[in-house]
Nucleic acid binder design. Sequence first.
DNA 1: TGGACTATGTGAAAACTTTAACGACTTCCG
DNA 2: CGGAAGTCGTTAAAGTTTTCACATAGTCCA
Lengths: 219, 219
Amino acid sequence: MDIEQTKIPQATAKRLPLYYRFLNNLHSQGKMRVSSKELSDAVKVDSATIRRDFSYFGALGKKGYGYNVEYLLSFFRKTLDQDETTRVALIGVGNLGTAFLNYNFTKNNNTKIEMAFDANTDRVGNEVGGVNVYHIDDLEEKLGDLSVAILTVPASAAQGIADRLVEAGISGILNFTPARISVPSQVRVHHIDLAIELQALVYFLKHYPLNEEAPMDEQ
Amino acid sequence: MDIEQTKIPQATAKRLPLYYRFLNNLHSQGKMRVSSKELSDAVKVDSATIRRDFSYFGALGKKGYGYNVEYLLSFFRKTLDQDETTRVALIGVGNLGTAFLNYNFTKNNNTKIEMAFDANTDRVGNEVGGVNVYHIDDLEEKLGDLSVAILTVPASAAQGIADRLVEAGISGILNFTPARISVPSQVRVHHIDLAIELQALVYFLKHYPLNEEAPMDEQ
DNA sequence: TGGACTATGTGAAAACTTTAACGACTTCCG
DNA sequence: CGGAAGTCGTTAAAGTTTTCACATAGTCCA
C-alpha cells in the first residue's frame, strides 16, 4: 500500500486533490484528453510542475498527445483512496461548522462527515446537512472508529477537545481555531486560520509588487 | 515604505500574522519577555526558523535575554501595517460568509469587513455581525475604494463576481470557492479550498508515516 | 506514408526554505 | 565581581520545490 508513495513530495501531495477535482469536471464534460498546458491554465499551476507531479506516479501520459482523462482519473481515484470513503467527525456546529456540514464533500471526495457534536443543547438532536448533531459529552461514546475530526469550536475549547479526540483514538485533526493545539507526534494536525489568511493576503498586497512578477501563491 | 521589505521570503511573511497574534496574547497577559524557544513551543515553528524570520527585520532581540514583548509587538504592528486598518468587503452571506462576519477580525488584526453583499433578497438589508448586507447588484456603487474582497459565494458565481470586483478596482481576493478564478496579473488571489484541505489531510494520514518523524505541516 | 507538429518525462540548474551549530554578548546568581 | 547559563544572530549545510530546456516519441494531416 505504501510502496513508492512515501517518496511523493508534500508539495505534490497537496496539489493532488486539486488535480483530481478538475479531472472530474473534465470527465463529466465528456472530455477525453487533456494536456499539462490546459491543466495549468485551469488550476493555475505551472505546466512543468504538473508534469513533474504526475511523473512521480510513473509515465501516465503519452508524448505528443497528453493525458487520457479517464485513465488519469481512475489512477488518481486509486491513489487518493477515493474508493474507500474516509469517515469524519465535526466538532462545533456554529456558522463555520454548519458551512462544512452543508458542503457536499462526498460528491467529489469520498470523504464523509458522519456525525457532528456541539455543546449547545439547542443544536443537539438536530440534523444539519443530513448529519446528526450529538452533545459533546457523548463524544467518546459515539465516535467509534472515526479517524479524522474537523475542529470548528471556539479557540478556548480547542485544546481540551483535541485532548479528548486524541484519547478517543483520532489520528488527524483539521483545526480551524486560532489556537495552535498540542498533540502527540503520531497525530497529524493541519491548521487553517482564517484571520491569518486574511492578514497574510493584506501583507502581500502591501509589500510585494503587484505587477507581472507578483509571486504566485496557491493553496 | 517598501525599503528592504521586499526581500522577506514568502514563507516568513505567512508566519508573521501568527507571531503577531501570539505576541498580542503575551502582552495582554502582562508578559515582558519571551525567547524564541518559548515562541516555538507555542506556535509550533522551529526556534531557529523564528530567529531567522525575525532577523530579516534586523536585530530585534538581545543575546542571553530574548525578545522584549512590547518592543517586538510595536515593531510588528508597524510592519504588518496594523496601524492602518484595511477595509474589506465580503461577497456571499451564506454559512461561511456569516462565520466570517461574526469573527471579530478587528480585535487583533486591524482588518475590518466594512460591507457585505448577497444575491438573496432575504438577506439584503440585514445586519450580520455588525455589517450591512447589500444586494449584489449594488456592488459597484457601494464598493468605493475597498481593496480586498472575501469571496464566499457558490463556485458557479465565482468568476463572474471576480470579474466585477477587478473591474471595480479591487486588488486582492481571498477566494473560498473551489473555482480557480482568473484575474489580471496585478490582482492577487489566495485560494482556500476547504474540501481540498480535508482531502490533503486524509492523503497525508494514509501515505505518510504517523510516527515521530511525521513531516510537520502547518497552515 | 512522410514529415511537421505536439507534448511528455526528466536531467540539471536555480530558487527557496529549513535546520544545525556556534561565536558573541547578556544576564544573573553566589 | 566572576563565572555559569542562557539566547541571539548568522554562517553554512542540507533539504525541498520549482523551473528550464530538450531529447524523445507519438499524433495527425495531406
